[in-house]
Amino acid sequence: MAARDYGQHSGVARAMELVGERWALLIVRDLLVGPRRYGELAAGLPRIPTNILAARLKELQAAGILRRAPRSRVIVYELTPFGRELEPVVLLLGAWGIRALGEPREEQGITPESMTMDLRSAFRPEVAAALPATSYAAHLGPAALRIRVEGGTLEVDRVDGAVDLAFSTGPGIHRLISGELPPETAIATGVVAVLHGRQDLLGRFATTFHLAA
């Protein structure tokens, strides 16, 4: 059970008791990308103390939000159907939060899991449906995400493959997604470095993933 009790018979209060402890919702966010081993969760949340990660996993499991499951001789953590119901909540929170990010601080980074969910938060299926199918590779340090947009659907994974545009970036990519930074300025200032492919497709990317107020 969650440590905090607000003393209110309220849906919002109960939700906060279940996922309002520090790090809990970020664990849910990363598990929305897919099942993860304990070490993978720790690597995706590099600042979380190991005792806190263990405690949050136990609390979320006790609440029926996640479960431990065997996968090829290892144990992974995955969301239950009840836990997956948090997906639209997390996506809406992500879209709301991106607009308030501001300039990234030097110590702030992004992970493949956090970027995946932010892309899903910012995805505009109604815009994508009118654009040609396009694939991107976003290199985030040593990791790379393959982003495929076709019609009104989005797929983000870690699989290698041919893409129309490959670029490297860091936390500043959120300035592009939020609408604060035009694509050409993102390239000129080094927020985005085009690795190969059509440079003009960054404009299509910015149109497809966009959260301007």
Rank of each mutant, 00 (worst) to 15 (best):
E106K: 13
R67G: 01
L79Q: 04
P125Y: 05
A43W: 15
A69L: 13
I52H: 11
R56D: 01
L101F: 06
F82H: 14
L66A: 02
V90E: 05
I75N: 08
E106G: 08
E126K: 13
G109R: 12
P70T: 06
I52A: 12
L79Y: 03
G64M: 12
R120P: 02
R68F: 03
L92R: 15
V74I: 09
F82R: 12
E85A: 11
R120V: 00
E103F: 08
E107R: 11
V76N: 06
P125W: 07
I75C: 02
A63D: 10
P46M: 13
V89D: 00
G83F: 08
I98E: 03
A43R: 15
V74K: 13
L45E: 00
V76R: 09
A62Q: 12
M115L: 12
M117P: 01
R73E: 15
P81I: 09
T50G: 10
T50H: 15
S121N: 07
G44C: 03
P81D: 06
V90I: 09
L60R: 05
P112D: 00
A100H: 12
A62S: 12
P88H: 07
V127S: 04
P88F: 08
V89M: 11
K58D: 11
V74P: 05
T111L: 00
A100G: 06
R124H: 10
R56S: 02
E103T: 15
L45K: 00
R67H: 14
A95R: 14
T111R: 00
P81A: 08
A95L: 07
A42G: 05
E106W: 13
R105T: 00
G94C: 08
I98W: 13
G83D: 05
R73I: 02
Y77S: 08
I52S: 13
G44D: 03
L79P: 00
I52N: 12
L86G: 01
R73T: 09
L92K: 14
P46N: 10
